[in-house]
Design a protein around this nucleic acid. Structure first.
Lengths: 131, 131
DNA sequence: TCCTTATTGATAATGATTGTCAATATGGAT
DNA sequence: ATCCATATTGACAATCATTATCAATAAGGA
């Protein structure tokens, strides 16, 4: 029986105000710098709950650290992420859904699920790199 | 300047004899049980080197732990992995390559790279589950 | 054979994440 | 408004995969 607490609300708001993926550590540091007394464990718990409630997405960084981002659209989607600045855009992936289902079936696999993330340099960072 | 050592050879062989993804911890435990004195740090180092040399693939488990698998085919490929038994098959993914490139370009992203893995229940496990 | 230096392995260190538990707060009943 | 059951918090401890440290050892070339 989940209860609403001011801490959960604060974490949720902090995450929503960020458009990009962010780690629990980072989010906690930001909240702390803004004067919040919320504990790190609470940040982790809240983020985990948001993911379970399909209100946020989780992603593993190359380092193995979990990153979180508030969902800006409902339903199944994927991410296009700038590996320089972190800017993230949500993308639909019907083509990949179909492909994954087909490939799985061809190999006799059932209950297919897929992990698909696209990284690159966003327009802004691409332009900066060229200069 | 990498040198060939009997330890590296042993780790490489152990990995090759496994067709599925395996963690460094697991591989180390197996080697130890088989009487080997190779240290855990050496297993990690060797696996990391194999990945750098494109002789092995790395994958992050949902737990955040890194898993490794010897490459059985050259060049770019992806994996179809049974989340029950770990059985793994390599699959090409031209369709996804194309999709990723197109999506990235549509959003102004350059230097696109993607992470694509498909999980499901392999034929054997699917059959076992149905029984 | 000797020598340079890469590598090893036991152990320590690191850092993200989760567990613990007394204290606190939520939300519903009265 | 008060009371109560219990969910939640947060400081700190625990966990665990991974990497760093460094004396000892080994590879590879002269």
């Amino acid at each position: 029986m989940k209860r609403n607490t001011w801490q959960r609300e604060a974490v949720k708001t902090a995450l929503s105000e960020r458009g990009d993926f962010v780690s629990a550590q980072r989010l906690h540091a930001d909240l702390k710098q803004a004067g919040s007394t919320i504990g790190l464990a609470t940040v982790y718990r809240t983020l985990t709950d948001l993911v379970s409630a399909d209100e946020a997405d989780a992603l593993q960084s190359p380092d193995g650290e979990n990153l979180y981002r508030a969902c800006s659209s409902e339903g199944h989607h994927h991410h296009l992420i700038c590996r320089n600045c972190g800017h993230t855009e949500e993308i639909s992936a019907e083509a990949v859904e179909a492909w994954a289902a087909t490939v799985a079936a061809e190999h006799g696999f059932t209950q297919p699920r897929h992990v698909v993330d696209v990284f690159g340099l966003c327009a802004t960072c691409s332009a900066a790199t060229s200069a």
